[in-house]
Amino acid sequence: MTKQKVLFVCVHNSARSQMAEAFLKQMAPDRFDVESAGLEPGKLNPIVVEVMKEAGVDISQNKTKSVFDFYKQGKQYDYVITVCDESQSGRCPAFPGSGRRLHWGFDDPAAFEGAYDEKLEKTRTIRDQIKQKIKDWLK
Rank of each mutant, 00 (worst) to 15 (best):
N13L: 06
P29F: 04
A115Y: 09
L24H: 13
S60D: 14
R31D: 07
I126M: 08
P29W: 11
V80H: 09
S89Y: 14
K43G: 01
A111F: 06
D78V: 08
K5T: 15
M52A: 05
V67A: 02
N13K: 05
E54K: 00
T64G: 01
V80Y: 07
I130P: 08
S89N: 15
V49S: 02
V80Q: 05
Q76C: 04
S87H: 11
G56V: 00
L7C: 01
K131G: 12
H103V: 13
T64N: 03
D69C: 02
K133D: 01
D58G: 12
M52W: 06
F95W: 06
H103Y: 06
Y79A: 10
D78T: 12
F32H: 03
D107A: 14
C92Y: 12
V49W: 02
H12W: 06
I130G: 10
R127N: 08
A22D: 06
Q18E: 00
K133V: 08
T125I: 09
E118F: 10
Y77E: 01
D58V: 00
D85N: 15
Y116A: 09
E118N: 11
N45C: 00
M19A: 04
D33Y: 11
C84P: 14
E113V: 15
E50Y: 07
L39F: 14
F8V: 08
K122M: 08
R91S: 14
D108S: 05
I59M: 06
V34Y: 13
V48H: 01
E21C: 02
A15R: 04
D107G: 10
F23A: 06
I130L: 07
K133A: 14
L138G: 03
E35H: 02
N45R: 01
K139M: 12
V67L: 10
T123V: 05
T64F: 01
D108Q: 02
R127V: 09
S36Q: 10
Y77F: 15
G105V: 04
Q76K: 15
C92L: 06
E40M: 07
E50T: 11
E54V: 14
